[in-house]
Amino acid sequence: MYKLTDYLLAIRTTGSPPAPAGVKTVDLVPTGSDDVISATLGGLRASGLTAADFRSRAIFLAPDGPAGLVTYAALCGFSGRRVDAYAGGTVLAFSRLGDDGASFPDAGRPSEFLLWAQVGGPVADGIPTVHLGSAGQEMVSPQAATVIRYAARLRMVPPDSARDALAMFVLVAALRRRADDRFPFLSTGTEPVPVGKNAPDQGIDLERLRQEAVRYRQELRIARRGADIVPPVPLSPHDRRIAEANGVDVRTLLRRLGSSADEEDMWHCPRPRRHSNGDERPSMKVYENGRARCHRCDAERIGPVRLAVDVLGVTPDEAASFILDSDRVVDPRAA
């Protein structure tokens, strides 16, 4: 069970609860634009967040109700992964969940192209409407999984609870996953019957927001490449230790994380539970610069410290201690 004090960075928005003492806080407050997506992206740019901030353990402090889903969707797009959240007095460890919803069986691909559908809320006029089960019931029926997974456009009407709304959003996005999670429209369920794939006024297009946040991260990366060179600053003992751990051969770490390679030097991902087939066919590639990347689990190439953080669920300091001060070998299916 994770606690708020386990995190190094807390991201707040309008109406969010305060962060615990000692936890760095960043406020992401939408700008004054009338367009929700533009306002949210403006708030993201003004917040000063960078992709590097998500290398440490970060959490989103959700305000009451489902309105925080918009900010949360932007954070997921910008960070390139699901972000943990705090709602209803509980830490929701979304970053530890499997990467797709393939474990939920569906009723088969629809015989006809499904353009629009809705999940949650009142039955919508003119489009299929499905619901997710509550506690003690089947969470996702095969029929609901088919509609959520194959609809080209999906409206989602969330529950009033911030905690339940976030859980529903993550599940729906995972069910719709292809290369990445696919986000639905945030809907009230009262929008007009959609006509065509790009029908207006269907709610907030969270998938477009995700893609715009991804592009903003790429802009920052390109800008860093053209930055002026400044005199190097001596590393602190703390940063030197992290750098030393990152200099360890990532193959050595992979072996200690229970991984192995095939004849083509492709490695089994040490996060097999995130793969529908347990990563029976190796999906992790090791690069010459000491970085590695699983095509399903990682948005970019990562070093030993980030890999250990993600696999073991520890802080960067704890990951460095595991790499440098221990020879322990872990079972990837229990990590």
Rank of each mutant, 00 (worst) to 15 (best):
F54W: 11
A174R: 15
A73P: 06
G88L: 11
D317G: 11
D310R: 15
I11C: 04
V147M: 08
V119Q: 09
D6Q: 12
L307S: 01
A299C: 08
A135G: 07
L75E: 05
A319Y: 09
F78R: 07
L4E: 06
L8I: 01
T31M: 04
D331M: 05
P282C: 03
A223Y: 06
G226K: 14
L220N: 06
W116I: 07
T188P: 02
R57L: 14
R178L: 08
I148T: 03
R210D: 09
V83N: 00
A213G: 10
D327V: 10
T252V: 13
R273G: 11
S33C: 02
P184G: 07
A165H: 03
T188F: 05
T13E: 10
T5S: 14
Q218P: 01
L209W: 07
T50A: 11
V147K: 07
R240V: 00
Q143T: 14
R176N: 02
T50Y: 00
A39W: 03
Y7C: 07
Q218L: 14
R177V: 00
E300T: 11
G108S: 15
P20C: 03
E288T: 13
S141P: 08
F104H: 11
Q143H: 13
H131M: 12
F54A: 05
S79K: 08
V214T: 13
L324K: 09
S236N: 07
P332S: 03
R240C: 00
V170Y: 00
R163A: 15
P282F: 01
L8S: 15
S283P: 03
P192R: 09
E191N: 07
V305Q: 04
D228E: 13
R177E: 06
R225D: 08
R306G: 04
L114W: 09
A213N: 11
R210Q: 14
F169S: 00
